[in-house]
């Protein structure tokens, strides 16, 4: 059974430790999720998406079941939504669910789809959903409702976006440990380009990452440009995700988890 400590990226762990220092943060986040978002989202899912079961889209249902078994996590509800963009997300604290776009189901093969599911399970395992609600809540208070000044909520929001990017790396580790780093690289390539046929080299993004880092570090101006651009992203760039997993594949923890999940 996988534990959150096994897969957590150090920066993600540091940020979560810092969040834990805020008194009552867990209970406040949990009540925000339960009262505001969880019921609302579940209702919306049931109303507009297709719920996977052993009768409806059984492939997705069985793949999710197998993924959760490998990780050692109770199976969440799975929904399919209509979207040409390959993506997936998870939400919920008391009864989490995973939503997967129709294009992901169509264009990813079984192993890659399980890898995507394992990524979402990684978020559930690390309790990212709980703290992600703070990001969402601050964003709404600051930008959409204008209740608190954006100049005040902005820096906190940017800091939380930084954590959000790091949390994605933890979830990526869960995906790579569950399905293997090669499958992860193939999945990331498919999501980056949106194609189902990507050829036979799964490490193109890793090579591209080295090229990107060369470009980024070429001058201070390039570095500032790239970092300013990235500061507003909730997810790391595809090349950095590929590169991080390529580094992590040499670690003791990756090898240990691979042995365990393959048994």
């Amino acid at each position: 059974m996988m534990k959150d400590d096994d897969i957590m990226h150090p920066e993600d762990r540091k940020a979560l430790q810092m969040l834990h220092k805020i008194p009552y943060i867990d209970s406040v986040c949990r009540s925000i999720i339960e009262t505001e978002y969880e019921g609302l989202c579940r209702g919306e899912n049931l109303a507009t998406m297709l719920k996977a079961s052993s009768q409806s889209v059984p492939r997705v249902f069985h793949l999710m079941k197998a993924t959760c078994q490998r990780i050692g996590l109770p199976m969440p509800e799975v929904y399919i939504y209509n979207d040409p963009v390959m993506n997936a997300y998870t939400y919920g604290e008391t009864s989490p669910f995973v939503c997967i776009s129709s294009s992901s189901v169509e264009r990813l093969d079984d192993r890659e789809l399980m890898c995507m599911m394992a990524h979402e399970c990684g978020h559930i395992l690390c309790k990212h959903v709980l703290y992600n609600s703070v990001v969402r809540f601050l964003h709404e208070l600051g930008e959409e409702f204008g209740i608190i000044s954006y100049s005040l909520s902005g820096p906190i929001y940017l800091a939380l976006q930084y954590w959000s990017r790091r949390s994605e790396l933890s979830a990526d580790r869960c995906a790579a440990a569950t399905m293997g780093e090669e499958t992860f690289q193939r999945m990331t390539m498919k999501i980056a380009c949106g194609l189902s046929d990507i050829g036979c080299d799964p490490y193109q993004l890793v090579r591209q990452a080295k090229e990107y880092h060369g470009h980024e570090n070429h001058s201070l101006w390039n570095k500032i440009q790239q970092n300013c651009r990235m500061a507003f992203y909730s997810h790391p760039q595809a090349v950095n995700r590929a590169w991080e997993i390529d580094r992590w594949k040499n670690s003791y923890m990756y090898k240990k988890l691979r042995r365990e999940t393959q048994e």
């Binding site: 990226h9 150090p10 762990r13 540091k14 430790q17 810092m18 992590w248 040499n250 670690s251 003791y252």
Partner: peptide, 21 residues
């Protein structure tokens, strides 16, 4: 047992490859 905020070791390549064996 909590990770130090200012450490930079746990994310370096050699740590990933060498720790703990």
């Amino acid at each position: 047992g909590k990770i130090r905020y200012s450490e930079s070791l746990s994310d370096c390549d050699s740590y990933l490859t060498c720790y703990p064996d």
